[in-house]
Design a protein around this nucleic acid. Structure first.
Lengths: 223, 223
DNA sequence: GCATTTATGATAGTAATACTATTATATTTG
DNA sequence: CAAATATAATAGTATTACTATCATAAATGC
């Protein structure tokens, strides 16, 4: 996959000026991810990012209209990337059950190596998604932003996996709840395992999280 | 239960001055909940709250050291209240399975009426918990705050329900994951049903959320 | 190769936030 | 009634999340 040099295309509604179109734009995203990982969403500012990349706050505002918009961009990039991996991982697999299994694995495992086929460090991006992505939709402007399509990539991924669920068990009444519960759940569990271990059962070295959600899926769908 | 007039006692580490000890303190919490519900966490400020209660920003700071501390107080109040309801609802019930079922119901149902046995509007508080509570622990200072015991009430509730899980199925390896997944999941689903319905399967008038998590629990524990 | 467009950088400025500090004025209590 | 305590009013600070303006550098078009 590393040799494909696919690039994730992001809709123009997620930026003012396409960051992929210039060196500065790529640097904003690349170093922006590193800095947000270090400081957390709240303490991250465009001013600090400007200093870090030897550029100017005002230049960054030409790419993203706000810090929130930058987060939304990252979240959509992440889901586009997951969608790509999902389509790739389930292509040519005959068994619907196997396709679902691969999907759940993909959605729940922690990304630990950077595929480095883009300027984005996927390991850090995933850490940010785990910790900060809910802030993209837990905002007073959700409804307005939902209308603008800010969460469409996420919804599309959920729908794809729902389709697999229904192939496996067409009678199942809660495919969306199941998949969004698993996605959000896995993000929480990854975070909890590092910071609030009393809320998990993660053991050193073992990937219990994937295991747990696979088991959950199997049992609730009677597989 | 309305006649009991129990009051939820909150540890002194969650405030500078006990808001329950004065009229002003109660008003801060009571109107603070209403205002945070209206504005959302980000736009909520102590200054605006001061105007609302005809008091002063500086007076509010004598009760809570920061906006974040106020949220942490509310989250702990919520979990103390849930814990009380949990203990009450499961007392004298012989069947472990039934205790677990009641617990899951309690953790996943949306609170729709105010028990009005305190100065706190529980319906609004629950809305705030659904929308804002994750911001209490998705912060760069989690580890420090966890050490200070900021999340202990939540962890205690999870542990109580875990104990029921293990009574029902002592071999089950992931009780904490299961319960924290259900709790966070139900909060997400409640929020999604109002703002991002594409991520749920909630039907008008039906409480599918409780139903889904009950089914999930039963199947994963082979009940 | 030079003019023109376009991108970037530097600087300044604004309203609001999240506080802290100080002082004044009520209110309670001993 | 004095002293202690709680609350209110005011001012001030550093930072945030921007917007606006102008200068300069780089790319492109003919």
């Amino acid at each position: 996959m590393n040799d494909l040099h696919i690039n994730i295309s992001i809709e123009s509604s997620f930026y003012c000026k396409d960051p992929e179109s210039t060196e500065l734009g790529k640097k904003i995203v690349q170093v922006g991810i590193e800095l947000m990982d270090q400081l957390g969403y709240e303490a991250f500012t465009f001013k600090k990012l400007g200093v870090e990349i030897n550029s100017n706050e005002s230049s960054i505002y030409r790419y993203f209209e706000s810090k929130h918009a930058f987060l939304v961009y990252l979240v959509n990039w992440y889901w586009s990337w997951i969608e790509y991996k999902l389509v790739f991982a389930t292509a040519n697999i005959v068994s619907a059950e196997e396709r679902l299994k691969k999907s759940i694995e993909l959605l729940t495992e922690e990304v630990k190596e950077d595929s480095s086929f883009t300027f984005i460090n996927e390991v850090l991006l995933c850490k940010i998604i785990n910790t900060e992505s809910s802030k993209a939709y837990y905002t007073i402007d959700v409804d307005k932003e939902n209308e603008k399509g800010f969460y469409k990539t996420y919804k599309r991924v959920v729908q794809r996996v729902c389709d697999f669920v229904l192939e496996v068990n067409p009678q199942f009444k809660y495919p969306h709840m199941l998949i969004s519960t698993i996605i959000e759940g896995a993000h929480h569990q990854n975070y909890f395992s590092k910071h609030l271990p009393a809320l998990t059962d993660v053991e050193e070295g073992k990937n219990n999280i994937v295991e747990f959600y696979l088991k959950l899926t199997k049992s609730v769908l009677s597989l």
